[in-house]
Nucleic acid binder design. Sequence first.
DNA 1: CAACTTGTGAAAAACCGGTTAACGCAGGCA
DNA 2: TGCCTGCGTTAACCGGTTTTTCACAAGTTG
Lengths: 266, 266
Amino acid sequence: MNHPQAIRLAVIDTDSGFVTVLAKRAEAAGWQLRQASGAVPPQELVAMKLNALLLDPALLGEEGWSYLERVCGMLPDLGIIVCTGRSTVAQRVRGLRMGVDDWITKPCHPEEAMARIEAVSRRRRRGRHEVEAGPLVIADLEIRPDQFQAFVGGDSLDLTRREFELLQLLAEAKGQVLERETIYQRVWGYAMAHGDRSVDVFIRKLRQKLEKRSPNWSYIHTHFGVGYRFDPEVAPAALAEPIRVVDSDPVPDSASQVVHSSFTLG
Amino acid sequence: MNHPQAIRLAVIDTDSGFVTVLAKRAEAAGWQLRQASGAVPPQELVAMKLNALLLDPALLGEEGWSYLERVCGMLPDLGIIVCTGRSTVAQRVRGLRMGVDDWITKPCHPEEAMARIEAVSRRRRRGRHEVEAGPLVIADLEIRPDQFQAFVGGDSLDLTRREFELLQLLAEAKGQVLERETIYQRVWGYAMAHGDRSVDVFIRKLRQKLEKRSPNWSYIHTHFGVGYRFDPEVAPAALAEPIRVVDSDPVPDSASQVVHSSFTLG
DNA sequence: CAACTTGTGAAAAACCGGTTAACGCAGGCA
DNA sequence: TGCCTGCGTTAACCGGTTTTTCACAAGTTG
């Protein structure tokens, strides 16, 4: 699927050839399409929750201009594209000034019509709230892009911006090993200079803050000579106790096994 | 002045005849016009605070497409109109999909070019606060879009237009951290130039006026390296009293501790 | 074991935000 | 017309935070 987002489009036209071809392409692109062959009351257009309206005012005769005016006035947020036959500059200017977003002349290539409808819809969407990705929850961790912050059980990790972006990048590529160059490129935005250790330093800071709020989990793994991989795993703890255990119970192998599982439980 | 609103337009073209005529009409309409005859770095375009850009990529040769791509990417909120000679459907579709808002073929009537530039700019403006919702009441604060003003207990905060729009934007995104760039883009309407501190200055003015009418509440929170978040919280006050507390209890260390916790509680 | 990688801690440099003040531009008023 | 005022922009400074850099320790590979 290569359509960025589905568009809800209404077409008011009686040129069946053009409409049929357009409908086919629109369907292929995953758009929602409504068709009509005469003036649709603005109220109904509102109810359709459209992104864009393509119409040929010619088929409305005298009513054409007044209908356009009404629609433009009542749906200031709807993308309106006029697609009609021969027209004068004055007519086009009048329409565009009135609120029409684009004016295409027939015959026109359906692909261009599609592209123009897209352009109008895109422009209309702008300035509206960007659809920030929703929170990402993995293991104990909650990554919230809307807060530029990560939490464990409601407690903030107090990540700086870079730390957050690094964590987000790693988490989104969960399970995948990312090379330093790639990481640097994506987080810092430009190529990494040879010998730069910034990534390493930030990984360390991240590990520190993750460990502080969420022991019992090991999130970031090092791949020697390559880079890092994000993949939450349990039982990072342990490792500090073996000494005591070995002290009291000299049996090396089985002992460490037992210790390991007991840690996992406690 | 009888034009709905002045448009800040840049024209990149070497067709002196066309440009001259357009310039004349633009001036008559009260538009701000900048001209160039070659690729202008996107950074400079940002600094121009444009509403729309009209250009003929033909004069950039091979660079044309990559330049268009760069501009579209860096100034997603700028209206971009391509005005060039013969072109194929494929080229137009490519341009429109890339982010161009309208594609006009030369020769074209300057009046139509004007109308299309207007249409694109208008569309850009739209979608911003379209849903002029009713009054918004949060904590002590009442934000009234119909008055372009905010009140606390009936008293006006005496906000200027920009201050009001900034406050409204923040309040509507309550709880969410907004980046400076986003804020600037939505309130000012164009891309923020690197190093611009306007947002900070206005945040300060807002805080001042909010504090004046509504102490005991802290509304705007700073997120270092990111931006600001609107989220009314109690207990910002205090800070004026320590003297009294110290007066009655000379013990420095413990006293400050007590004071601190009492502040925290409100 | 030698060469190279990565972890670590701390100092230096760069960056950021709060704050203030000056500037320029417009509209209002005399 | 010319002054005055309010508003938005820009620059500068300062204290604080973050990021980068560096040197060395620790770990890994062949």
